[in-house]
Simulated scan of single mutants.
Amino acid sequence: MKNALITISTIIDRLNERVGRGVAWLTTVLVLVIVYDVAARYLFNTSSAGIVELEWHLFSFIFLLGAAYALKHDRHVRVDVFYQNFSPKKQAWVNLIGTLLFLIPFCVVAMVAAWKFTINAWTIQEGSPDPGGLPARYVVKAAIPLGFLLLLLQAISLFIRSLLTLTETARSYD
């Protein structure tokens, strides 16, 4: 059983590592798009709705698809006033309970809510309402449930690793 849990957690971790590293390259693309936008505005006094939308589309992909990677590497927002001083066992308890009571249910609710939203956007092939905007807004909306699915998977991995930490700790005291 332990080996199966470790295998599941490892597969999830590898998936989110690959996705996270891939998404990280979008930050470079985003910086280049922003530099182009700023140069176009201030040097040539021109702007484009499509460029502005591309900026927030890229940011959306980075945020949504990179959240699981951030959780995997413990780079998410957390109030560390107490947690950083906890023992590994207490940290595992915090992670286990927080994941089970808050993170997993939140991911499920977000995925269910986003699913209808995404299906509707794909059905109507939603694009930008702005003249000159990007035509495929539905692709960005599809990243919402996908991002929460990746986050849910990483939450499961965190839960497994926390559970294993607690069971190993319990065994070491027997």
Rank of each mutant, 00 (worst) to 15 (best):
residue 95 N to K: 13
residue 141 K to R: 14
residue 120 N to S: 13
residue 146 L to N: 01
residue 92 A to Y: 04
residue 108 V to A: 09
residue 88 P to N: 05
residue 119 I to W: 08
residue 92 A to F: 06
residue 92 A to C: 09
residue 99 T to M: 07
residue 131 P to L: 01
residue 99 T to W: 00
residue 80 D to Q: 06
residue 146 L to K: 05
residue 129 P to F: 02
residue 139 V to Y: 10
residue 133 G to H: 09
residue 121 A to G: 08
residue 146 L to Y: 09
residue 124 I to W: 00
residue 134 L to K: 13
residue 119 I to T: 10
residue 115 W to T: 13
residue 122 W to S: 05
residue 134 L to V: 14
residue 109 V to T: 04
residue 143 A to C: 12
residue 100 L to P: 00
residue 122 W to Q: 11
residue 115 W to F: 12
residue 117 F to K: 07
residue 145 P to I: 09
residue 99 T to L: 07
residue 120 N to E: 15
residue 110 A to S: 11
residue 133 G to Q: 11
residue 90 K to Y: 13
residue 132 G to A: 03
residue 134 L to H: 10
residue 132 G to I: 03
residue 106 F to C: 10
residue 84 Q to K: 15
residue 89 K to M: 12
residue 102 F to A: 08
residue 86 F to P: 05
residue 91 Q to R: 15
residue 145 P to Q: 04
residue 109 V to I: 13
residue 103 L to Q: 08
residue 110 A to K: 06
residue 115 W to L: 12
residue 98 G to F: 04
residue 90 K to H: 14
residue 104 I to H: 00
residue 107 C to Q: 03
residue 107 C to F: 02
residue 144 I to H: 00
residue 80 D to A: 08
residue 85 N to K: 14
residue 90 K to P: 01
residue 105 P to L: 00
residue 130 D to E: 13
residue 91 Q to V: 08
residue 104 I to F: 00
residue 118 T to R: 07
residue 128 S to A: 06
residue 137 R to H: 15
residue 140 V to D: 03
residue 104 I to P: 01
residue 128 S to K: 12
residue 141 K to N: 10
residue 97 I to P: 04
residue 96 L to R: 06
residue 145 P to L: 05
residue 142 A to M: 15
residue 120 N to V: 05
residue 107 C to R: 02
residue 87 S to P: 11
residue 114 A to V: 08
residue 119 I to D: 04
residue 103 L to M: 13
residue 104 I to C: 02
residue 146 L to H: 09
residue 145 P to T: 08
residue 93 W to M: 11
residue 81 V to L: 14
residue 146 L to A: 11
residue 82 F to T: 14
residue 108 V to P: 04
residue 124 I to E: 05
residue 86 F to Q: 08
residue 98 G to E: 02
residue 101 L to H: 03
residue 137 R to K: 15
residue 91 Q to D: 04
residue 94 V to Q: 01
residue 128 S to H: 09
residue 109 V to D: 00
residue 147 G to S: 03
residue 90 K to G: 00
residue 119 I to R: 08
residue 104 I to V: 10
residue 107 C to H: 03
residue 127 G to C: 09
residue 127 G to S: 09
residue 98 G to T: 05
residue 104 I to M: 06
residue 142 A to V: 10
residue 108 V to L: 12
residue 138 Y to R: 02
residue 120 N to M: 05
residue 83 Y to D: 13
residue 122 W to H: 14
residue 127 G to N: 11
residue 131 P to Y: 00
residue 81 V to K: 00
residue 106 F to N: 08
residue 84 Q to Y: 12
residue 130 D to G: 00
residue 92 A to P: 02
residue 139 V to K: 07
residue 87 S to Q: 12
residue 142 A to Q: 12
residue 128 S to E: 07
residue 92 A to R: 05
residue 124 I to S: 03
residue 99 T to A: 10
residue 146 L to Q: 04
residue 106 F to D: 01
